[in-house]
Each structure stands twice: as C-alpha cells, then as structure tokens.
Design a protein around this nucleic acid. Structure first.
Length: 211
DNA sequence: ATAATGATTCGCT
DNA sequence: GCGAATCATTATG
C-alpha cells in the first residue's frame, strides 16, 4: 500500500530486518512499526505498541526450547520473516514473527496494536460498535481485528501479500520503551523473569495484562 | 487412544 | 477478582 503518503516514508520491512541474531533488539525495534493485513481486498493496519521476544532453544518460555521440533514448532525454524500463528486456549490465534536465520527458532510475539486504517472492518470482525482499547489491545484480539488466523501460519511477511510490516519512519527513542517480564509464562522458571516484554510508554493501546 | 494443558478473553459476582 | 470457554498440540500408555 503506497497511496498518498507524500511526505511520510512507508516501506515494507525486508528479510534483512528479521534475519538478525538478536531477537530482543528486533522485538524492541518493532515498537512503532505498522502491522498490515489485506484479505479479499480489505486493508487493516495498526501501529505495534507491545511485543515479546522468545529467544529460541535457550528460552524455557519458547515453544522450541531445547530444540523441540514438532509439527507445530517446525515453522519456527524457517528463516526470519516467516509468520508463526498458533491457536491458544482453543480460541485465540496468536501472531508471531520468526527471526534469525534458518534453523534458529527465535520469534517475536505481537501483543498489542493501535488501530490506524480499516477500523470499521476491525469493529465488524470484533463485533463491537465503539473504538476502544479491547478492540486491539491483546494478542488474541488484535489477530481477530486484523483477520489473522492459523490459516496464514508459515507465510512470508516480507511482501505486500496478506500480512506484512511497514516502517513509517517513526523514531522511537529507547526511553519511550518500557521493558518488563513476559505475560502468562510462569511455567518457564527463571526465564519468566527476563525483561523480554516491550511496550510504548504512555500509549493507551498497550494490553492491560498484569506484568 | 486417551488425557492434560495453555504466549487469553469475557462475563459475572 | 474468579472461572468458564474450547480445541490443537503434546506427552504418555
């Protein structure tokens, strides 16, 4: 989508952005980028305001910890820039971006976005009639709002094809990024304490999950 | 083949 | 604040 953005830059993040070694840096840098989907010609976009890093085989909270390789986790070993979408609690489609090179199962979970374009479509998908925080502030509901489903598991995010990420040239300084422990992974022992959750300071669209 | 379990959300008390 | 919803994946027999 490159319509009337005359002054703003708006480029799709490439494989190079995702195929780097430090998943924690990538999770931080994704704050302020724009997550876009287009299905059946319907465009919806939102600014990423909350992410979590999952540090591959060494991270007890990561589905691929200790090199676990199953039907579900095999997509995590794809090259950076691949989508990893799985069903959680039988209800919620959680959207992750695979990072690093092929064979290394690092990933970033997108936890919340601030709606930009297509909010009317998002409201319909969420069966809501008012734009408020529970439209997109949470990993399960943002997927519902953007129409992301496990159907799209394994697709490439580096083309304007279904799901992609744009850089709108926003410069977020590190003192505007809050870090803290990840949500819902108490089973991960000491790794549950790692400060791998990042959010945009003061943004009302950050998920209400307890830290 | 069977049983347990979530990287969550929503509604009700 | 608490518990139900709901099902693919995973481990185990």
């Amino acid at each position: 989508m490159s319509l009337n953005n005359s002054s703003k830059t708006s480029e799709i993040l490439s494989a190079h952005f995702f195929q780097r070694a430090d998943v924690v840096s990538i999770a931080k840098e994704l704050i302020g980028k724009v997550l876009c989907t287009e299905f059946d010609g319907v465009l919806t976009t939102g600014q990423i305001v909350e992410t979590e890093a999952y540090n591959g085989i060494h991270d007890k909270a990561c589905h691929a910890h200790s090199g676990r390789f199953t039907k579900r986790t095999k997509v995590m070993y794809e090259p950076g820039g691949t989508a990893y979408i799985y069903l959680c609690y039988g209800i919620h489609h959680l959207f992750n971006i695979i990072t690093n090179n092929e064979g290394i199962p690092d990933a970033v979970l997108i936890r919340a976005i601030e709606p930009l374009e297509g909010t009317q479509t998002m409201l319909e998908r969420r069966k809501m009639n008012q734009k408020k925080r529970n439209l997109t502030a949470g990993p399960g509901i943002l997927s519902q709002a953007l129409g992301i489903k496990t159907d799209q598991n394994g697709i490439q995010l580096t083309r304007e094809n279904g799901i992609w990420i744009e850089d709108h040239g926003l410069n977020i300084t590190s003192n505007n990024i809050i870090s803290g422990p990840r949500v819902g992974i108490g089973y991960a022992g000491e790794d549950a304490l790692l400060p791998y959750r990042f959010s945009l300071r003061g943004n009302p669209w950050v998920s209400p999950a307890k830290t």
